[in-house]
Amino acid sequence: MSPYRPFIESKRGGTEASGASASAFALEVEAVSVGYPGRAPVISDLNFGLQRGKVLAVIGPNGSGKTTLFRALAGELPLAAGRVLVRSPHGGTARTTEARSKPFKGRTKPADFAGAPEFGASRPDCFDIHKLPTRLKARLVARVLQNEQSAWAVPVADYVRAGLFAAEGWFSHDPARAAKKTAWALEAMGIAFLAERPVTELSGGEFRRVVIARALIQDTDILLLDEPTADLDLEHQMETLELLLDLAKAGKAVAFSVHDLNQAAMVADRVLLLAGGKVAAYGKPSEVLTAGIINRTYGARVFVGRHPAADIPQIVPDPEWMDRVRANRRGTDS
């Protein structure tokens, strides 16, 4: 797969933008609680940020609230408390009279965000994502679901093109530009050869790359991927992890959830460990991925060493536990 190159068509190119505000948070989570009515909160009092150019791995036992968190970050799930702030992709204030007077041409323009609720004088460059209309949310945050199934045998190129819906709206605006963007996204994901194939006839790995391609042409600064490496073979897992790094390098803020802790160790700049809807640990992989923390939150028995060739944690089952299990096993066999 060719390395990811941002789609450059305007002054707002990915690499150029990354240098400008790489240190600032693209998305900030402030004292967020999420819950379904009449039940205990799924997530309570969460604080963290997503940085452009960085990869965040969200880990945690099943049911710890990873997917719920992503839905809340994308503004799809109402919050019980707190707020999710998303930095305007244009820097500075979103209200620009010059841009507002020009007609919308299908590209993210400040004018489209004019009138959207902003924060007062303290945060003029941020939006509360929960107060934006659906289409604007989709232009700030792209989210890739864990499971998705197409109802119809739509050709891959058209399926990917749906990623432009947030920019284009209920009618198509510019077919030539859409075709160009679609071709770029397919190329970036190494699936240009699948363009005409119906999405219902793809392998799991191919389909996964199709939906990531669709997220790419949403052209957002923030990408949330729910278990992007699940049900992929080793080669495609590694390609996907590489892509996450490339996307971050191109200036995007990337968050992905994952069960394989070693994958988190490999690519993440920060790791967020959720347990029971609360942050059990947050920090660099070497700080979070320790035997003590993992054994406590997962109720498992692991041994954390170092990767033999790289300076990252390596998580394997605890040797004592393995010896005991094997001994028991031999005992029952004989």
């Binding site: 799809e76 792209a142 989210r143 890739v144 679901l145 197409s150 109802a151 119809w152 749906a162 669709r214």
Partner: peptide
């Protein structure tokens, strides 16, 4: 076609 939740994210 991609499903209701996905359509929402788009």
């Amino acid at each position: 076609a991609a499903g209701e939740e996905t359509a929402g994210t788009l």
